[in-house]
């Protein structure tokens, strides 16, 4: 493979190294916060694949996050499978759900697409409530102690240890970042952007745009589900709220703030937003109002987000 966009690659490498180093300087509670940020930014990176690069605005990505969360969490809760197996099952579950939903939702466009993804996700959320005897509903389920650690190459990885969690989250984040770099900076990513910029033209250049969109949709949903599986297994809790509307909106907002269609935007957006929300929820319970205001403000005056603005003004390679 030839190297292209070496600058972005270098920036990604530096970012990962800095993140790794942070655990040695940050106090424990911030390391924990950073662990959450890493996992949620994997969620947002998945979202960005579809919304940022391919231009398809989904309002239902909580459904894929939850698919990963529940597939992983329930399989370890009820069948006692080990955490790595549960993690893989979570990814497979999210893949299956996103493929099926994609096949259906991609028959629609624009506003219809948004409503269809919203409705499917809402149906998924309601199902987690409907089958409370299995899912634990709103209360959720706490994973048993023997599902909080696993053996790997003779080592025991303990999911209640902050260090283990942080480094595992960073590992998954790095793998996803590498995969997304390969996709977005190569020929496939170019097709995603081509569909976003001008779908009819892309068709007339000989591409099956439905297949391209379905690919983007499935990759996006699967990555979001990977984040969900990781979140559930790492913090040992699965609950309906992860399937709710607000979770979808947060992925949208993180992506919008960081910069849709930029590789590192979701990480930045997630970091900025989770810090902000953490601060605010200390002051007021109505921090949701900030989400509302930001959705409007960003949409009005800052649609490219932080990195998107920097890309358009100064650094063209930041994509």
């Amino acid at each position: 493979m030839t190297l292209h966009n070496g600058k972005l690659l270098a920036l990604c490498v530096v970012t990962v190294i800095v993140l790794f180093g942070l655990q040695f300087v940050l106090p424990p509670y911030l390391t924990l916060a950073l662990t959450r940020i890493l996992i949620l930014s994997v969620f947002a990176m998945g979202y960005n694949m579809l919304m940022g690069y391919t231009g398809l605005l989904s309002l239902g990505h909580a459904m894929f996050f939850a698919a990963g969360l529940y597939a992983a969490g329930l399989s370890t809760y009820y069948w006692g499978v080990t955490l790595p197996v549960a993690f893989v099952l979570g990814i497979v579950g999210a893949f299956a759900v996103s493929l099926v939903i994609g096949l259906l939702a991609l028959r629609t466009q624009a506003v219809s697409f948004m409503i269809v993804t919203l409705m499917f996700a809402q149906a998924g959320y309601l199902m987690t409530l409907q089958f409370t005897n299995i899912t634990g509903g709103d209360q959720g389920l706490t994973l048993p102690t023997d599902a909080r650690s696993f053996g790997l190459f003779g080592m025991v990885v303990d999911m209640t240890s902050d260090t283990a969690r942080f480094n595992l989250a960073l590992l998954i984040f790095t793998v996803v970042l590498a995969v997304l770099f390969a996709i977005t900076q190569g020929p496939l990513g170019r097709l995603f952007v081509a569909v976003r910029e001008n779908e009819p033209r892309t068709q007339m250049l000989g591409f099956d745009t439905y297949a391209i969109k379905l690919t983007a949709f499935t990759v996006s949903g699967t990555i979001s589900g990977t984040a969900g599986a990781l979140y559930g297994l790492m913090f040992g809790y699965i609950g309906s709220s992860f399937a709710g509307f607000q979770n979808s909106i947060e992925a949208l907002l993180y992506t919008l703030i960081g910069g849709p269609g930029t590789l590192l935007g979701p990480l930045l957006g997630t970091a900025v937003m989770t810090m902000l929300i953490d601060r605010l929820s200390g002051i007021t319970t109505a921090y949701l109002i900030v989400i509302g205001v930001l959705l409007i403000v960003v949409n009005l005056w800052f649609p490219k987000g932080i990195l998107g603005t920097i890309r358009d003004r100064w650094l063209g390679w930041l994509k």
Binding site: L57, L59, V111, L256, A286, I289, G292, L295, I296, L300
Partner: peptide, 18 residues
């Protein structure tokens, strides 16, 4: 059309929280 949906979601949160 898409921006309107995002903005009215914002309005939804603001009205609800106020």
């Amino acid at each position: 059309p898409e921006g309107t949906i995002v903005s009215t979601i914002g309005m939804l949160y603001i009205i609800q929280q106020l």
